[in-house]
Write a protein that binds this DNA or RNA. Structure first.
Lengths: 110, 110
DNA sequence: TGGCCATTTGGTTAAAATGCCAAATAGATG
DNA sequence: CATCTATTTGGCATTTTAACCAAATGGCCA
């Protein structure tokens, strides 16, 4: 594999890896609507604050979100606005599998 | 977090996680062009066959690829054809960071 | 300043991912 | 049938992730 291509694939993989967690996807979806402080997100997710803070740190590290400290709160927002669109294909994968499974169930008469 | 939404986020996360590895992204890109046997992919990636086989198994498990045994070879192809399109946003994230970093370098006179 | 609030960081533990080797499996072929 | 090739599976060592608790940090306000 060519070195430059490898580097590019690694960069992409890092972004995907950062997104590949239910809580982090939740955060991304919420930030699509509006910016949020850590406390809001923590309440919505229902995990320890430190856990949520670390998820946010992963997203920030990957360049997916930006943070903005105001008073004693920190507000997060998406760096790039296209994430919803981004999921078209993930959904296609899920739907494709769902269709196949329901066809199977039908075939075995369930 | 609502139970149904949680399940949906978990399903999405599983797909993303399956994609979030350089070798698996490489496989996806190659399969976009044409189907490939394990031996081809192994040669291109340059890892142990068993390693590549396990990567393929991850992608299959996630519903991203399909396999087809012909003779003593197994050919893999994408289950869903939209992956290239899927990367528009990942690229946006990468470009956004790149722009920011180069602006920084410029600012400090490098 | 002292204390409160929001957030981050460090530490620990458990679980999952990665990669290789070796062995098992399945098909093709002499 | 013996054997070769392609692929998968099992086992193992190492690394990475994830979650919580506890402690540290930073800003606000009495």
């Amino acid at each position: 594999m060519i070195e430059q291509r490898k580097a590019h694939l690694e960069a992409r993989a890092r972004v995907l890896k950062a997104m590949a967690h239910p809580s982090r996807l939740f955060i991304i979806e919420e930030l699509e609507k509006e910016e949020r402080c850590v406390c809001d997100l923590t309440a919505m997710i229902g995990a320890d604050v430190s856990t949520v803070s670390k998820h946010l740190s992963v997203l920030k590290q990957a360049g997916i979100v930006l943070d903005d400290k105001r008073g004693n709160q920190v507000f997060y927002r998406l760096r790039v606005p296209c994430i919803l669109n981004f999921f078209g294909c993930v959904e296609s994968v899920l739907e494709s599998r769902a269709r196949e499974q329901s066809a199977y169930l039908k075939a075995v008469g369930k």
